[in-house]
């Protein structure tokens, strides 16, 4: 019966994952390997193709962008509606791309929040602790979720409609060119574990339910929830990857890398805030990053 409960939990989290995350690993890998039929991504590899790619997105997703802004709260409409193609000189390209990333990240935070709420027991935790778990866990989750979108040559963005090359990202001015390189290095290694979406769903829940986040008020119920999800993940990996030895341990070891990447990422954002006079940080991301590490 206990194993049956753990299997039910794995199924439940996988269903929630499919409900809240629009671009699954299965879809992303199909696009990256050219097996998605007509769904061929537009490739951004230089400034000219970046301009064309932006136009493609702006033409198709105005209402979506408005929706993102509404989700984000007050004071951002002006800034984000000015992120359109051709409205700024080419040297503003990095900041403009950075704003697009921020918009998508804010939307992704909403998706992760909904996923967290679907973890059995999460919404019964102290509300302050729910905030703390999300504050500390969400960037780790977002970075982890970039892995299925990446290969050694580039990354899918904009829900898989665009493939941006790693070389182009490296050609941006400092420190923008440094922002995604560590994520590529991590992703290439992480992807060799060959986790699928059902594995990822459980792993994301384990990350969110970390009982050692600073400032938690009531650690015990969080650790109890995490222990159950850990058991479910261990069993699921054994069934789903019977030939992959020590996969459970290898997956858990990635949590250390993720924490370090978040620390480095937040430091880069702080640097940007100091050096870029025109930089505007999304209010939701500001909340999350303030006093983080």
């Amino acid at each position: 019966p206990e194993a049956a409960d753990l299997r039910a939990l794995a199924r439940h989290l996988y269903e929630a994952y499919l409900k809240y995350f629009p671009l699954t690993k299965a879809k992303a890998r199909a696009i990256l390997s050219g097996k998605s039929g007509d769904n061929v991504p537009f490739v951004i590899h230089d400034i000219k193709s970046l301009m064309e790619g932006e136009q493609l997105i702006n033409n198709g997703q105005t209402s979506f962008q408005e929706q993102q802004i509404a989700t984000a709260g007050h004071g951002v409409t002006h800034t984000f509606t000015h992120c359109n193609i051709g409205s700024e000189p080419p040297d503003g390209v990095e900041l403009r791309f950075f704003y697009s990333c921020q918009s998508r990240s804010a939307e992704a935070v909403r998706e992760v929040t909904e996923f967290a709420k679907s973890i059995p027991g999460f919404v019964n935790l102290d509300l302050n602790d729910q905030v703390t778990l999300l504050k500390y866990g969400v960037i780790e989750v977002l970075i982890l979720m970039m892995s299925p979108l990446m290969n050694k040559d580039g990354t899918l963005i904009s829900y898989g409609q665009i493939f941006m090359t790693r070389e182009f990202l490296k050609s941006l001015r400092k420190p923008f060119c440094q922002m995604l390189e560590p994520k590529f290095d991590f992703s290439v290694k992480f992807n060799t574990l060959e986790l699928d979406d059902s594995d990822m769903a459980l792993f994301l829940a384990v990350i969110i339910l970390s009982g050692d986040r600073p400032g938690l008020l009531n650690v015990k119920p969080i650790e109890q929830l995490q222990e159950t999800v850990l058991h479910s993940l261990e069993l699921h990996l054994k069934i789903n990857h019977p030939d992959s030895l020590q996969l459970f341990a290898k997956v858990l070891q990635k949590m250390t890398d993720l924490r370090q990447m978040v620390t480095d990422h937040v430091q880069l954002i702080q640097l940007l805030k100091k050096t870029e006079v025109d930089m505007f940080l999304h209010p939701l991301l500001q909340e999350i990053m303030k006093d983080l590490y």
Partner: peptide, 21 residues
């Protein structure tokens, strides 16, 4: 803490699309 994280708090409290447990 939730006072310093109003948007996050709102996302957590928003009941428009919760999964029924």
């Amino acid at each position: 803490l939730k006072e310093k994280h109003k948007i996050l708090h709102r996302l957590l409290q928003n009941s428009t699309s919760p999964v029924e447990l």
